[in-house]
């Protein structure tokens, strides 16, 4: 059984890490990062079967691909807090000579990252390729991926979505962060996505909703259910309903903090709303 309280305690620390990373360099993407804090903590601390250490091939363990690379602050925080690299290294986010580039990359050798992402719409294809390799290698572990909802406006995703169903890639669990926001406004205003469930189902996927994507118990339960639904001949899609900017009141329910850093005062307000549970870096 998952210790939900322990996971929730990690989430507030991760939110602090996110705010402090983007504040220090006055750049980065806090909104989507905050909205996915529960997902990342649940995935890395509870759901995935991970090996100690890091190797690129990831044989004999579950692996994860982040497609919407701009939410790197939450990815970096959870990777560091899960032991992939020293937590103090979060201090180098977006600085010259850092392994923590603005968008994640393998180029600087940061443990935990298996593909560069940032240019949107590419991560699902990569995850499917890795899932095919796992099948060829006889590795029974799973491949997880995350993409943004706005990102689904990129056509490559639909090539990948079609491919996965046609080829019965049932060892992949693709989560969509449904926060309804993108840089220019709501997804409805920019380019309406319609029913994601209907679209994925029409393409032959098993679809599962996590209605409360910022409630740890719901996220853990939903991802476990997704895991149980995998291996049945179809790819699995998790539609995770989240709130952009979750956990920092003035950042919530708006696209305004998609790619904007808080000032000193805003940082103090945000930190006051999130307990320091594991110690700031």
């Amino acid at each position: 059984m998952a210790d939900i309280q322990k996971l929730e305690a990690l989430v507030t620390q991760v939110r602090r890490d996110i705010l402090r990373q983007v504040h220090k360099v006055n750049s980065g993407h806090p909104g989507g990062s905050l909205g996915c804090a529960e997902f990342f903590v649940a995935l890395f601390q509870e759901i995935m079967d991970r090996k100690e250490g890091f190797d690129m091939d990831g044989l004999g363990e579950d692996i994860f691909f982040l497609s919407n690379g701009h939410i790197s602050p939450v990815f970096y925080s959870v990777l560091a807090r899960s032991g992939y690299f020293p937590v103090e290294e979060l201090n180098t986010f977006r600085l010259l000579d850092s392994r923590l580039q603005g968008h994640p990359t393998t180029h600087e050798g940061l443990p935990g990252v298996r593909i560069a992402s940032g240019s949107l719409g590419q991560g699902l294809s990569v995850a499917l390729g890795a899932a095919e390799a796992k099948k060829l290698n006889g590795c029974g572990h799973k491949v997880y991926s995350l993409m943004g909802d706005g990102e689904l406006q990129e056509g490559q995703n639909w090539e990948a979505i079609m491919y996965a169903a046609a080829n019965h890639i049932d060892n992949v669990i693709a989560t969509v962060d449904l926060n309804g926001q993108q840089i220019d406004g709501s997804t409805d205003d920019v380019l309406a996505l319609g029913s994601m469930r209907a679209k994925f189902e029409a393409f032959g996927w098993i679809v599962l909703d996590i209605e409360k994507g910022n409630d740890m118990a719901s996220v853990v339960q939903g991802l476990q259910e997704a895991k149980n639904l995998s291996g049945k001949g179809k790819p699995v899609c998790v539609l995770m309903h989240t709130i952009m900017g979750n956990g920092v009141d003035f950042m919530m329910h708006t696209h305004a903090w998609h790619g904007k850093a808080p000032n000193d005062e805003q940082l103090a307000t945000g930190l006051a709303q999130n307990a320091e549970t594991l110690g700031d870096y």
């Binding site: 692996i63 593909i115 294809s125 390799a133 090539e159």
Partner: peptide, 24 residues
């Protein structure tokens, strides 16, 4: 070991990149 991807070259490149993860 042969993967027909259809008329979907962008996905093909991504799939190929992913397959290297696992030693292919």
């Amino acid at each position: 070991r042969f993967f027909q991807v259809g008329i979907a070259e962008a996905n093909m490149i991504g799939l190929a990149a992913g397959m290297t993860i696992g030693g292919k």
